[in-house]
Amino acid sequence: MARLKNNTMVVVTDSEKALFIRNLTDHENPHFEVTDEEHQENPSDIEQSANRPGRMQDTGVGQRSALDDTDWHELAKERFAKDLSDILYKEAHKGAFDHLVIAAAPQVLGVLRQEMHQEVLNKLVADIPKNLTNHPIEKIEEIIKAELDGD
């Protein structure tokens, strides 16, 4: 069973915002403090697209097929997760934390798992596939403690 220890780093993230939190106490009575935040502006795909999707010649006479346009919004989400994994690596390499808990939206967590360096994975105590970024800090404490108790 995973447990929160004093000074555990907790990262709560979605595809546009990351909260870096420290647990200042123990598992029985966690007390979280936000130490840093990362934000990324990520407008909808329509706002980021330059023009309508392209077309190409098809096999039939006078036929054309539409091409899917790049989904810039999804690419930005993946880029944010990759950037976050780089931040975690730098912090782990500096010795900023010994224990890490990540609570992330499921699709972000999937990208993070692929991108995280082994040094970060070695410090990972638990990953929770939930989006908690818009919860108050007291609720985040409660949910994470409950999730870890359920392991």
Rank of each mutant, 00 (worst) to 15 (best):
K139Q: 15
L19T: 08
E74N: 01
D14Y: 10
G110S: 07
E91F: 12
L67D: 01
L67S: 02
W72M: 03
T59W: 08
Q63M: 12
A50Y: 08
R79T: 12
K123S: 11
E47W: 03
E91V: 01
A96Y: 06
L4Y: 04
N134S: 15
Q107N: 14
V12T: 03
D14E: 10
A96F: 01
I87C: 07
K145M: 06
Q118Y: 14
R22T: 07
E16K: 12
S85K: 04
F97M: 02
P43G: 13
T8V: 07
K77Q: 12
D127M: 06
T13C: 13
N131Y: 05
A2S: 15
T70G: 06
S44W: 11
L132N: 05
N51R: 15
R22H: 08
G150F: 10
A104R: 10
A105S: 11
T59S: 04
E91G: 02
V11A: 06
N122L: 09
E47F: 03
G60R: 11
V101C: 06
K139Y: 04
N23A: 05
F80H: 03
L148R: 01
G110N: 13
E38V: 12
E28A: 01
G54V: 01
K90P: 04
R113Y: 06
I140N: 00
S65D: 08
H135K: 15
V11W: 09
S15T: 05
D14H: 13
Q48S: 06
F20V: 00
E138K: 06
E41S: 14
M116P: 13
K94Q: 13
P136S: 06
A146W: 00
A103V: 07
N134P: 10
A66L: 12
N134K: 15
H135G: 00
E78W: 02
K145I: 09
V120I: 08
S15G: 14
L109G: 15
A50F: 04
A66Q: 14
R79C: 09
M56S: 02
F20M: 03
G62I: 01
T13V: 13
V34K: 00
E47N: 10
K82R: 13
T59H: 08
Q114S: 13
